[in-house]
Each structure stands twice: as C-alpha cells, then as structure tokens.
Design a protein around this nucleic acid. Structure first.
Lengths: 243, 243
DNA sequence: TATCTGATCTTTACGATGTAAAGATTAGGA
DNA sequence: TCCTAATCTTTACATCGTAAAGATCAGATA
C-alpha cells in the first residue's frame, strides 16, 4: 500500500459542481473510448468493461494491484461503480476467476488436437495446463491462490465444475474406462487426485520460483517443460525392481 | 476490511499527556503479562513476542486477519512498534514463514522414526507433510500462498533451503542413490519435482476444499489421508499393460 | 406523448491498513 | 556522570473496501 502515484480518482471528476445548470456542453471523455463518444452517465456495458479492465490491471500490476478502485479507475468510472455490479471485491474476483476458468477450459479443450501418438496425447493436457498458467500467472493466481472466491456464484461454480469434469474425463480416457458422475473407485479417485495434484503443485512451485533450485542443477538448458515431461514419463524408481 | 470491532488501538494508550510529570504511579499493564510486571517502555524481547503474537493471530483470525496492527495489538504495543524489528509487513511475514519452515522441518525429521517397513517409511513423510498443513493451515499459507516473502532474508532462506534439502535427501534414500549438492540428472530432478509437486499440490487442493468433490464420490468414509496413500501407491494404469 | 419507476452511476463518508517521520524513553558504554 | 543509540510511541497521510445518499437516465406505463 501507500503508493506514491497521485493519479486522479476518476477521469470524469470535473463535472458541473451541483447547480443543475444542465450545461452538458463538454463532458470529459471516458477512458479509452473513441474521441467521438460522449461518455454518458450510463455506461451501457459496464459489467463487461469492468471485467476487461480488471484483466488488464491484473496483467499490468499483478494480484496485489488488483483493487476495486484500480479497476474502476482503469474503466474510467467512479470508485463505487463496481459495487453495483459485483457486490464487493469477492464478487469481482469470483467473476474474474470464472472468466479465467473458461479461458483455461478452452485452452485445455484445444490442446490435444494436434497430438497423434498416445504419449503425445497424454502429455498435451499437462503441458497446456502449465503453459496457460505461465502465460497468465495473474489469472492463475486469482483462480488458485486467492482465498476470496465465492463458489456459490453460478458462473464460477459452473466454470470450475467444467474444468474438473474435463480433467476427470481425460483421466478416464487414459485409463480406458468410463468415469461415473456420482461414484468413484479408490483407484480412480487416486488417479484423478494424482494427476491434478501433480500438475497443480508443479505449476504453483514453478510460478513461485521454487523450482529454480532444481532447474539450475539440471543438465545445461533444461526447461521447465522438459522437467514436467520427465516428471510424467520417467520411471519412478532409479533402478529396475528387484536389484 | 471495515471491521466493526472498535477495540482500542493499544492497551497502554493512557499515559501522562506530555507534561513530564514523571508520575510513574500507575501505568497500564501489558497484554498477557503477570499482574506484577510494570510494562516498561522497553519490552526487552519484543521481537520474539511479536512473532508469537503473530502466530496466535494467524491461528485465530487466519491469513486475512494477520496485519501489522493486529499483531501489535495482540502484543500490547503501539502499532508502529513492529516496524522497527521487521521493517515492513513483508519482513514480519518472512520471519514468521521461517518459523513455520523450522516447525515443518522438525515435524518431517521426526516423522519416519516409528516406521518399520520400507512402504511405511516411504509414506511417513508425505503423511507428515499433509498433517502439518492441516494442523497449521495458516502457517502453511504464509509459507506457500503469500506472495510477500523475502527469500533474501537469511533466516527464511536457510529454513526453506533445509526443507528442500530434506526432501531431496529422502528421495535419494528411496532411490538408493546419493543426491549430489550441485548436479542432478534429469531423472533425479524429475523424481524430486514429482514428489514435491504431488504432495504440495495435494495439500493446496485439500486446504482449499477442492478435493471435497472427489472425496464425496469415493467409497463411504474415505479420508483424505487414505486418498493420499492410494495416490502414492496405487498402480498408474487401470489395467495391467498389454491388455 | 408525458410521467414515473427502477436501474445505474457518482459523491460523500468512515474505519482500517501500511508506512514514514518525529518525539519520548531508557539501556549501556564512555 | 553523561551521552549516544536503540527502542517504543505519537502523529500524520495515502489508499483501500464498503455503506449510504444523491444524481441521472432508460424504458415501461398511462
């Protein structure tokens, strides 16, 4: 906190004081709108604009910079405007996380298209998972690091559910068996939990820079992606069993 | 934010205004000190007291409640006192994380003592890992969820390093080979990354309640610990290879 | 078409937080 | 005994989330 950046609270704060002179002559323009639009009192699509603004702020300033007021500034509206559309910060973060999950699901879905061999198909999803997180670390943080998410919101609940279903489905395909909706064997649950834990844990550690230590000691120029690949394919034991 | 709890900023704010009357008659007692001690201007061991206060606040109010001012209140000193010992919030969090890593390392070290079979020994550490996180979710959050950690601080760097060394060592033992300090084969790195990612990812998902979905569909009364066990021991494929 | 109602957005206000700066107090060495 | 530096408190300020009340306007209703 305590930034030294004294940017004005909003971009349209110079209005006729309070005397309703109705002098609608020259109102300040809204943020990134074309110089033609007049910035009406009612935005029209503020909700979407705020979500996009939030995404920009997140990419520019990271998780710590993503505040209600910063988003409002970015969208060129008053700092209290977001409240009406999202209730509170939790609401905004939750809706933004839903956006993230949908992006993420789309990336997952189109990941294994080009894969030909079974091995390539098995590796496509994990790689896409990590790739998404690396390309959108802020968004991944919103989805998996924040504690302020409200999963009772339908949009977030649905998007996250779909994400999980996709994962379970992929595991089922790999195990060549049908994964039921309402019941799992221990081995099935273990397979899903293992895959998810592994790739999620790897991603978190990677984003937090905690794998630098390992990567630095690996053979010259080993990338994170290569390490992930080895993690998923290399034999568990160092030596063949029974030696 | 915006709590409705109007507790006084500090427990000792009623001092002689400014006239140095030196009327040291009755000064307010410090927080939880015995009714005998007189709460001197200099605490004597404020640093340690603040860290312990921080741990209490963390367990009581969670990560969101752990603020510099809350810690100062808990310790019964002025809100600016922590600054002198930790610089800023990042400093306090980092030192607290170091405490956590040391607790964690101790728990890891004493985990595999009672294990007799090789399998039990292999499972002891992961179980202790998850158990620590479940017993101290706030602390685990400080260590692995917060973005405000300064690893250039020697205490944190050391404690975290020791934690990693312990992990690498355990993996080496399991693989029956010596893990070098400065060089790793790809398979070694993969084994370490796999173990760490798996148990860390599992822990995060578990703490975030994201495994409830799986646990609920598992056979009646399957615990998280049982799922972890299966995750680490169950065969990867559903059917034996070649069918 | 004129009016009215509710949704949308702005203003204003308040308590809380992190941090900086200056003052008060005291321990411990010169 | 005095002085310096460390320790702790006060005071101040920018920023944040949130609540409440006022301003504006779109669209239905008459």
């Amino acid at each position: 906190m305590a930034k030294t950046d004294p940017k004005s609270e909003t971009a349209r704060s110079a209005r006729a004081p309070s005397k309703t002179t109705s002098s609608a002559a020259s109102r300040p323009r809204r943020g990134s709108a074309s110089a033609k639009t007049e910035s009406p009192y009612h935005h029209g699509a503020l909700r979407e604009a705020l979500l996009q603004a939030a995404e920009r702020v997140l990419e520019r300033d990271g998780l710590a910079g993503l505040t209600l007021r910063a988003v409002a500034r970015e969208a060129g509206v008053s700092h209290a405007a977001p409240t009406h559309h999202f209730g509170d910060l939790t609401g905004l973060l939750s809706e933004l996380a839903a956006v993230g999950f949908r992006q993420f699901n789309a990336a997952m879905a189109s990941s294994s298209d080009a894969a030909t061999t079974p091995l390539a198909r098995a590796l496509a999803r994990p790689k896409a998972y990590v790739a998404y997180a690396q390309a959108h670390p802020g968004m991944y943080g919103i989805m998996f690091r924040t504690e302020r998410l409200d999963y009772s919101r339908p949009s977030l609940h649905e998007a996250a559910e779909a994400s999980f279903a996709g994962l379970a489905n992929a595991i089922g395909m790999m195990r060549q068996e049908q994964i039921s909706e309402d019941a799992l064997t221990l081995n099935q649950g273990a397979a899903i939990a293992r895959a998810w834990s592994m790739v999620h844990g790897f991603t978190m550690l990677l984003l937090d820079g905690r794998l630098e230590d390992i990567l630095g000691r690996l053979p010259e120029g080993t990338t994170a992606e290569r390490l992930l690949e080895a993690m998923l394919t290399a034999p568990i034991a160092a030596k063949p069993p029974g030696t």
